[in-house]
Design a protein around this nucleic acid. Sequence first.
DNA 1: CTGAAAGCGCTAACAT
DNA 2: ATGTTAGCGCTTTCAG
Lengths: 334, 334
Amino acid sequence: MNPTIKDVARLARTSKSTVSRYLNGQPVKKNTEEALKSAIKELDYHPNINARRLVQSRTQVVGIVADDISNNFYSGILRGIEKVTNAHRYHCVYYSGTSNHQSEIDFLDLVQEGQVDGLIFISFSKRSQELLERIRDITIPIVLVGDGEADQQILSVDVDNQYGIHELIHYLHRIGHEKVAFIAGPNDIAATEYRTKGYKNALEELGLEYKREWIVGSDWSKEGGYKAMKELLKFGGFTALVASNDETAIGALLCAHELGFRVPQDFSIVGFDDIEIARWIYPTLTTIRQPLYEMGEKAADGLINIMKNTDEVMKERVLIRPELIVRNSCKNLL
Amino acid sequence: MNPTIKDVARLARTSKSTVSRYLNGQPVKKNTEEALKSAIKELDYHPNINARRLVQSRTQVVGIVADDISNNFYSGILRGIEKVTNAHRYHCVYYSGTSNHQSEIDFLDLVQEGQVDGLIFISFSKRSQELLERIRDITIPIVLVGDGEADQQILSVDVDNQYGIHELIHYLHRIGHEKVAFIAGPNDIAATEYRTKGYKNALEELGLEYKREWIVGSDWSKEGGYKAMKELLKFGGFTALVASNDETAIGALLCAHELGFRVPQDFSIVGFDDIEIARWIYPTLTTIRQPLYEMGEKAADGLINIMKNTDEVMKERVLIRPELIVRNSCKNLL
DNA sequence: CTGAAAGCGCTAACAT
DNA sequence: ATGTTAGCGCTTTCAG
């Protein structure tokens, strides 16, 4: 059996309460402190965190649930979260949706079971109405990163997808492009809708030509981008291509190269995300940088507020504007 | 306040013990079961896991500590672990070394504090003697993935780095290469030593020429590979290059291309790891595939054994042999 | 199959 | 500054 607070008390010739107080940073007399210190060391005492959590009914940990915890893409988000939570003396514990249970719904229990004080769910998939309703019903401290709904009383943080595409197309327009094709994303990804809408809206805003054949779907993989490009080239006629993520942009690039086209001389191509390799391919890719770190910060900030304030906290959908990164994959037509 | 087992008992007109038994799958009479079920539903009762853990002094969770939890490279390892742990009804909880605390040493407490029943540490950095000694001293259930020591009484799992390089060089030799250069890795990575040793040993075994100028260091990044290749080309004279990871292989490839060389016509290049992009670059990269899933399985298997058996378990260093993946980056000289 | 009672290790009044 | 006491919510004998 592990040593307990009681063993420490006995060895240090004092009481449990004093030990407890010492452990929690409250003042004790100099010589009892000495005794305590050496007793703890001698016994190799470690406080039982379950007992503490039972009586305090809080854990000082926030649970982070990601659909795939080792998704490199989330790295920036996690760092943003950690920075904020650590500043408030919370620890982070991670749960991977790909393991343990199945869907995010199953992790809702973590708070009610007393495992964590609050939750951050990270995923870019669309979230079910069922999950959203459950969250609204049980009123536990939670914030969503990725999909969410504006009118539900849930705090959610996401990149402003529509704005990002908007930036891309305005940039292309500024350098003289009038005919812009688009590779859309998968239907189960929340961003797909917003990015596609962003494309259509920007076209309309700028009075650019819209052709049904200039939009083609993809699964957001390199293969998908490759195939999409092949499809688009059957019709042709565009001078620029907006791929709705960098992976498909890379696939499209490869396809163009293989078919003997040169980028950006023959086509301009832009992506979305600014994944690490975007600056390593040839030509380096003009794209939109995801504000991952800020998203993490905002999410954690929001969660801390919800956990601390018993009174009303703004539960809204926060969209963070991403940044245009100009590299060498576009040709100036002017 | 959350409802407790007591509330459920009262509502179902029975005792705490019966509720507890029901919750833990022990037999209860049909009609008490009904009453319990509806009481639990009505109260939205969730068992307090801290109370349970306090009394049972086990958690049924294994903690996984990774130096960078969102490192895509670990994904396969994590899936291997999850498969095994879930089969034994353990849950996985992840801790990221980049956050919360600093080094792996700080996470050793998790077991003694009762947060987890066992630990798996994942990292490819060299591990300090201090950590290894602490682990040996405190006898908690733990297994290491990555660096470890053969003679310490600690179970550790790693890829057989030396064997991997050996495979690569024997392959090159089989297709006629006699002059083989090498890009080494960073000093703080445990594998660097073994891969470099593998290079030297294989050369010796096959009676191939060894030149000090044909080994150059790198930080394992693409930039590092690029620079290393540039360095190597100052001396030249080799027909094949073994990059000790895929990233540097890609950097070296880029460098060769930029200087007007063609791969594999002018040089053969091989990597190590088989990262996702290895099959996407031009030419597709011949490399060694890390047995990540198996490593995860072995690690979890070992941990489960340690946790279950009070008696002696084999604490050894397990090296898993990786597989050669032949693609198009090597020229057959015969 | 069920209930009463003890106790897991800790914190938090309360009293001194 | 310290000791005494009660109790957090659960499991687990032990009786019945």
